[in-house]
Amino acid sequence: MTIDQTITLRNGVTMPSIAFGCAFGDWVGGSEFQGFLPEQAWRAIPMALDAGYRAFDGAHAYGTERIVGASLGQRFASGALTREDIFITTKLAHPRTSPEVNISHLRTWNADEVEDIGQRVLDDMMRSLDDLALGYVDLLLIHWPGPFENRDAALARDARRTIWRTFMALHDKGAARAIGVSNFTTAHLRELVEDDQLTTPMVNQIEAHPYCRDRDIEAYCREHGIVITAYAPFASGALGMLGDPVLTAIANKHDVAVGQVVLRWHLQSGRAVLPKTSKAHRMRENLDVFGFALDEEDMAAIDALGSGAPRRTCADPNDVV
């Protein structure tokens, strides 16, 4: 089965099917520290560029956009790359998290705490562009559909509508070539599209891996031409997934690494994917998934791993009203 290395979004923008994830830190209990560690990006981003990555998935909340911008700026200055060679995604409107998670309150906010939601989005967008030292991003996503603790559904829906209208304006003036959402459920998407017949998102970025499947949202997105992008494709290194005997057997069968099997499964399922690693050989390995194909038996075996309740490493978007 031949898989293209790019995906064409509904508005004609071409997006690489594999992008390098730029969130560094720990959220799954593997260390005492919980939060972002952007300093790890200083080595990883140049290594990813050297490995061949040309798409980078970031967010205002991650604190790595200045590092991405500096790394790209060096390549632009030398003539090794041009802006047109690179696909940059950023995300805005990350809600506040629990106090033990170390995320800057300057980069996260709840809709009910902001006097002018649209202006806050515009201000954060300009901060992201300043950090990236770019005039535009290729893809702009709403990071989460709303505050984690909020139970006021009307407030959340109205805030999403305001944010999305602001995104549409940014797209119209070229600050974002494409726009979409992240962590949106089917209910969130339906409401967003129903409100004043707003533009349908072009991408929905969700947690997806062999242990975490949401077939309802995937079916809805396929029906409406929304590209699914899988973050945490390796379950953030948790849950013992990369040691799963089913995945290991398939990897041995094709003489590839387990991570390559997982990425190939995502691509053959029609999803874009965001692997992240700090090891150069893994970076190259994660891009080298176009020279083999999984057969129907392989695909069915991997699909079966996610037949139960989703096992998540991040917050459940179904809990966001």
Rank of each mutant, 00 (worst) to 15 (best):
I228M: 10
D214F: 07
L263Q: 07
E207C: 12
R215G: 11
R213A: 11
S236Y: 08
A251Y: 07
A235Y: 06
S236V: 01
R215E: 15
S236K: 14
T248D: 11
A251Q: 05
D244R: 11
T229I: 12
D255N: 15
V262H: 04
G240H: 10
K253H: 14
T248H: 11
G259K: 00
R222Y: 06
I226M: 09
F234D: 00
P233M: 02
N252T: 08
H209C: 06
T229W: 12
G237V: 06
A249E: 08
V261A: 00
N252C: 08
G259L: 00
L247D: 10
A219N: 03
D216L: 11
A230S: 15
G225W: 05
P210C: 09
L247I: 15
A251W: 03
R213L: 12
D244T: 06
C221G: 11
A249K: 10
G243Y: 03
I228C: 05
Y220L: 04
P210Y: 04
I226K: 05
C221V: 01
H254W: 02
R213Y: 11
L247Q: 12
C221S: 10
A230R: 08
A232P: 05
Q260C: 02
A232T: 12
A251G: 08
N252A: 08
M241I: 06
I250A: 08
G237L: 00
D244F: 10
Y220M: 12
M241S: 10
E223I: 07
P233T: 02
V256W: 05
A257T: 02
G243Q: 14
E207R: 13
L239M: 14
D216G: 10
V246R: 06
A230V: 09
I228G: 03
F234P: 01
L247P: 13
Y220G: 03
G259Q: 00
A208S: 13
P210H: 12
E223L: 14
E207G: 13
N252P: 01
D255T: 13
L263A: 01
I217V: 15
V261W: 02
C221R: 11
M241R: 08
A249P: 00
Y220E: 04
G259A: 00
A219Y: 10
Y211P: 06
T229Y: 14
D216S: 13
N252E: 13
K253Y: 06
D255A: 15
D216A: 15
G259R: 00
E223T: 14
H209F: 02
L263G: 00
H254S: 07
G240W: 11
A232S: 15
V261R: 04
Q260L: 04
P210R: 11
C212S: 13
V256C: 06
V261Q: 05
C212A: 15
I250R: 03
T248I: 08
F234H: 06
S236P: 00
Q260G: 01
D255Q: 14
L239Q: 14
